[in-house]
Nucleic acid binder design. Structure first.
Lengths: 194, 194
DNA sequence: CAAATATAATGAACATTGTTAATAAAAAGG
DNA sequence: CCTTTTTATTAACAATGTTCATTATATTTG
C-alpha cells in the first residue's frame, strides 16, 4: 500500500461513507459491510486501508468537530461579541447534536475503549465545546466579562451542563418537547454565566 | 408457564445472574448465553421466562435503583438534615456509579429504544437522582432552605451536572485523578446549591 | 402404579457482526 | 507479452439474539 494520492482517495471514500451512515442512521447501523457497500467496495477491502473499524471512526470524530464548529458559527455570526454571543454559540453547539443525534451518540455515549481508547479521541471530545467557543471565550476573559480565575471552572460547568441536558433530551426524551428543552437549556446556561 | 412461586424463583435466578454480570463486567459482557450459564441453565431456557433480554435488563434497572438508594443512604445517615446532607447524598449517589461503572453505562449510556423504549424505564432513570435524595430534598424545601419556586429548576441543574461529571470521569477519563474528580464535583454541586 | 397429557428445558439453525487468511484480479515493470 | 508486485475479493470463524422443533420431566388421569 503506497502512501500516495490514490490511497488517500480510497480512504476518503470509506470515511465519507462512514460519516453519512453516522449522521443519518447512527452508530448502530454502522458496520464494515455497510460502509464498504456505500463506498462501492467489498467489505474486506476496508482492511487494506484501515487497521480496523475504530481507526475509521476516529477520523470521523475529528471531521465532525470541524462540522460542528461551522454549524455553531453559522448560528451566531451576526451577534456582537460578549456573553450573549457566547451563550448563543453554546446553544448552536447543542443544536448541532440535536440535529445529528448519531454524532451525539458517537461523542458522548460510545464507551471508552471502544475505539481504541486513544488519548487523542478523549481530548478531542473533552475539549469539544471549548473548541467551538474558543473566540467568544477568549473575548469574554480578555474584556473582563469573565474573571480569569473563575474561567476554567465555569467552562467545566458549562460543558457538564450541556452534556447533561443533551443526554436527557436526546437519549431519555426528557423534557418531551423541543420548546421546553430550549427553555431549560437557556435558563441553565445563563445561570452558570450569571 | 404457570404464574406461581416456581416461575418467580426461576426469573430470580436469571435476574441475579444478569445483575452480577452488569455490576462486574458491564453490559458489553452481558449475553443471553452468559446469563444462562451463570444461572445454571441453557440459553434458550431464558426465553421461557422472559419475552427477550430487554425485559430482563429492565428488571435489573429497578433493582439497581434500590441498591443505589441504600448505598447513598449508608454514606449520609450520620449527617444532620439540611443542605449539607443533601450535598452528601448527591455525592453518595455519584459514588455508587463510580464504584459500579457498568450500572452507569446501563443507566446513562445505553441508547433509548435498546430496551424497548419503555416509558417506565425512562422515568425511573430520569428521576433516579431525585428518588435517591427525596427525604433531603423535601426537608430543604419545607424548611425554607430552598425556595419552592426555584426547587424544580435546581433539581434539574443538579441532575444534569451530576450526569455530566460522571460521563467525563467514567467514560472519558477526565479529570484523570479521583481526587480532582471529587474536588470538581464538590465545587459544582455546591455552586448550584449556592 | 401405569399411561396419557401438559409443561419445561434444550440443541440445532439462522442471520448478523468484526476480523483474518488464502485466493483472484489488476497494475506496473521489463 | 510475460513476471512481479499491488489491490480487491471470496471463504471462513467465532460470537451475538432469537425462533422452532424436539427431547426430558412433571403432573394428571385411569
Amino acid at each position: 500500500m503506497k502512501n500516495n494520492i490514490q490511497e488517500k482517495r480510497m480512504r476518503e471514500y470509506f470515511i465519507t461513507a462512514a460519516k453519512e451512515i453516522l449522521k443519518g442512521e447512527g452508530i448502530k447501523a454502522l458496520s464494515v459491510r455497510n460502509i464498504a457497500e456505500r463506498a462501492g467496495y467489498s467489505y474486506t477491502t476496508l482492511y487494506n486501508y484501515f487497521k480496523d473499524v475504530n481507526e475509521l471512526i476516529f477520523l470521523c470524530i475529528t471531521d465532525f468537530q470541524e462540522e460542528c464548529n461551522q454549524y455553531a458559527e453559522g448560528k451566531t455570526k451576526n451577534i456582537p461579541f460578549g456573553k450573549e454571543r457566547l451563550s448563543a454559540k453554546i446553544k448552536g453547539y447543542m443544536g448541532f447534536f440535536v440535529e445529528y443525534p448519531g454524532i451525539f451518540e458517537l461523542y458522548y455515549l460510545e464507551r471508552v475503549g471502544d475505539f481504541g481508547n486513544r488519548q487523542t479521541i478523549i481530548e478531542t471530545i473533552s475539549n469539544s465545546l471549548e473548541n467551538s467557543c474558543k473566540a467568544e471565550w477568549e473575548f469574554c476573559i480578555s474584556h473582563g466579562l469573565i474573571k480569569k480565575e473563575d474561567a476554567s471552572l465555569i467552562m467545566l460547568q458549562l460543558r457538564n451542563m450541556v452534556v447533561g441536558l443533551l443526554i436527557f433530551y436526546i437519549n431519555r426524551l426528557t423534557p418531551a418537547s423541543y420548546v421546553d428543552f430550549i427553555d431549560q437549556s437557556a435558563k441553565m446556561i445563563d445561570s452558570i454565566l450569571q
